[in-house]
Amino acid sequence: MAQLPPADFSQFKLRVNVRTSVENAYRAWASASGLDSWFLGKVTFTDEAGAARSGDSLAQGGDEYACYFYRHPETMAIKGKVLKANGRNLFSFSFSKGCPVTISIYTEQNETIVELIESNLPTDEETMRKHYVGDSKGWIFYLTNLKSVLEGGLDLRNKNADIVNVITH
């Protein structure tokens, strides 16, 4: 039997189908108000001159972003840079450990597909376990929440501060 090629743990790809327009899906990624409605927590974008963008305006390549925990708004969850933003269907930003996350949005079978690729992940055993598994698990929930929010308006994030250790935040 032919040997399988070695698995590539330096990147992963996730896709979710969403019944919404490509434009709406793009706005959900590229604007602070869009991200606030379904992602980790409150997001701010600042342009290259250091000025904060308003909630509804679209981020541009070179912007910096900061994301604060939904449940601990005083603590910054992550900060990074917008690497590419074409204003229509491609949005890329640096994420955990500076690894790029690229979002491509396109149509398939009359539905909108949001495709996420996180790449350049470290592949030594310890960090691989943590980042490949940890990040892909995290994105699976948030992509599901993106679909839920965009399709029906139901936010699946846990809002009960007394409940911890659940996948919903």
Partner: peptide
């Protein structure tokens, strides 16, 4: 301790950022 044992989404990332801060 809560985050370290948590199955929460991006729990590990959150722990790292808290430690960093």
């Amino acid at each position: 301790l809560v985050l370290g044992d948590s199955c929460g989404s991006f729990a590990s990332l959150q722990a790292d950022m808290i430690i960093r801060e």
